[in-house]
């Protein structure tokens, strides 16, 4: 098997797909994986591919024109997912799209289509989850900062939701895992920023600042539960531990 490897971001994956496709080795003999590779195999040969803007553009154009723009946006959406098989899945979906047109994305008879829907659903759940459990801290006067630790790079998907919710507030959501932040200045559009080491370290301190409403929230959170109906198992399944890291009610 010829394995083409790349960084796990959208542009690198599209470049990798371009190189793999043009290799002429035959689709069956090709695999695309994102780095780091967890376990190298003796029987496979590995080729690293770097991001290349011309290649990226030509893949985007081909998908947009020969399949459809919404097919491309589906591919771009799942590229945010942390699952290791996503780059290869994108490649296989493109093969199907070129062969059968955009409608194939709903044909659940294909395993790759089923997997695509699984990942899309999971990603959207992950994004929704952080719309629910992100907790803002007021730091200084009227600047609200939230830290999250998602599995996938979904922080950008929180931008539209929180901009609509708080259009006239200064706020930012920081993804501590991928070190990216969505930043929203009051009454302005939001933007995505990759944080430098210094910025990241400074922003880590925000949760240590005292916010008086945190205490009130904890009081409410405890008193609203009915003790005769306590069910910590159900609470854990609906509010999994990995999403509670920055939920102040558990600190």
């Amino acid at each position: 098997m010829n394995v083409f490897t790349c960084a796990p971001d959208l542009e690198s994956i599209l470049s990798c797909i371009y190189v793999a496709w043009s290799s002429g080795l035959g689709h069956k003999n090709i695999k695309i994986e994102s780095e780091p590779i967890e376990q190298l195999s003796l029987f496979d040969s590995y080729t690293h591919v770097d991001k290349d803007h011309a290649m990226v553009q030509s893949v985007i154009d081909a998908v947009n024109l020969k399949i459809s723009p919404s097919f491309y946006s589906d591919l771009a959406y799942i590229s945010m997912a942390y699952e290791k098989d996503v780059p290869d899945l994108m490649y296989r979906l493109m093969l199907l799209g070129f062969a059968y047109g955009p409608g194939v994305i709903n044909n659940t008879c294909y395993e790759v289509v089923v997997r695509f829907h699984e990942i899309k659903k999971r990603l959207s759940n992950e994004s929704c989850r952080f719309k629910e459990v992100s907790r803002f801290h007021e730091v200084r006067h009227s600047l609200y900062v939230a830290h999250i630790e998602p599995k996938s790079r979904i922080v950008i998907t929180l931008g539209p939701a929180f901009s609509d919710r708080m259009p006239s507030e200064n706020w930012m959501v920081i993804d501590d895992v991928h070190r990216e932040a969505v930043i929203h200045p009051k009454n302005s559009p939001f933007y995505l920023r990759t944080l430098t080491e210094d910025e990241f370290n400074e922003l880590l301190m925000t949760e240590k600042e005292n916010d008086e409403y945190t205490d009130l929230w904890k009081i409410f959170f405890d008193s609203i539960a009915i003790k005769e109906r306590e069910n910590l198992k159900l609470q854990r399944s609906l509010f999994p531990l990995w999403t509670r890291k920055h939920a102040v009610e558990f600190t």
Partner: peptide, 17 residues
């Protein structure tokens, strides 16, 4: 609707009730 938390009885907390 949006559930922001789940109390120890497993019920969703969405509003300041």
């Amino acid at each position: 609707g949006v559930c922001h938390a789940f109390a120890s009885d497993g019920r969703c907390i969405s509003l300041l009730k």
